[in-house]
Design a binder for these strands. Structure first.
Lengths: 152, 152
DNA sequence: TTAATGAATGTTATATTATAACAAAACAAA
DNA sequence: TTTGTTTTGTTATAATATAACATTCATTAA
């Protein structure tokens, strides 16, 4: 971490505030498990795996089981508070939950670093495709795998 | 099927010819298992699942096991002869293996129909992103999930 | 033709990811 | 407080995928 613990803590607090607000807006409840999973994903440097999260959960709540974690993940995904990386079967925080910007990911197969990214042209592309094909879009996945700048 | 068996057979033959040519170009061998898996995916109306393909394989070759199918799938994916739908964990034929056009998929969550599609703007977007981020691209996934025209 | 090499396949075992189904508890709201 | 709905608990199992090592096959150089 390049920043202090204090800064770090503030960032999480802020993310939780935003998440709470988004839940309220949707009449959804950010229960304890859901909040805990959100936090775990949020503080993770790497994309988090479902069973890794489960192991973490179980430290506080030994009764946690696979459905516990998958339900929480589904909930957070549906609200756009996290993203699933389908090529990795892993989960990452959303850097912009309030804006609902469509985003995509660059996945380096060498150093494993994953970068969330945005582009106006991507947003336009999605809109164009949906419209031209009369497609009622619910979710998109756009992931690019290869070698990052460092690893080329 | 809206077309005759004869037409159908010709299409598969042609696809196999193209696949064979592409393999030759890459110094790769289209062995029996690989060819069989390619055919099975090719003739499937729906995206094919790995273990479904395995079951088919085993009808001719009882010794086939999970690695058999996953190795063949990896081979075909690497050459761009098939695509993997990461949101569905399923495999579909590539409609344009020679052109290497980047393609994406529209997945209807109601009728399950999956449509492969292309767009010049998508190609440009990928090029732009890769270039601007110095990213050496190896593979992309772009899948849009929602309701198709029929199901809205 | 044969020996050597690397590629592909066979085989066993197991890891990883995810969901079905139903019961119990917590919550909302009438 | 009853009633209906959402959430969680729990057990079991389904579905997807890979590791590791042995064997066979194909290619080519000697």
């Amino acid at each position: 971490m390049s920043h202090s613990c204090q800064q770090h803590k503030q960032q999480i607090e802020e993310a939780l505030d935003i998440a709470t607000r988004i839940c309220e807006q949707h009449g959804a409840r950010l229960t304890d498990v859901r909040k805990r999973v959100f936090e775990l994903i949020w503080v993770s440097d790497q994309p988090a795996k479902a069973y890794g999260l489960l192991t973490e959960l179980q430290k506080n709540d030994p009764s946690a089981k696979p459905p516990t974690i998958y339900r929480a993940l589904d909930f957070l995904l549906e609200l756009g508070l996290i993203h699933k990386l389908h090529r990795l079967n892993a989960y990452v925080r959303c850097t912009h939950p309030e804006e609902k910007k469509p985003c995509f990911f660059l996945i380096c197969t060498n150093c494993q670093v994953v970068t969330e990214s945005h582009d106006q042209a991507y947003k336009k592309l999605i809109a164009k495709i949906s419209k031209s094909r009369d497609f009622k879009l619910h979710a998109t996945t756009f992931e690019m795998e290869g070698l990052c700048q460092q690893c080329v």
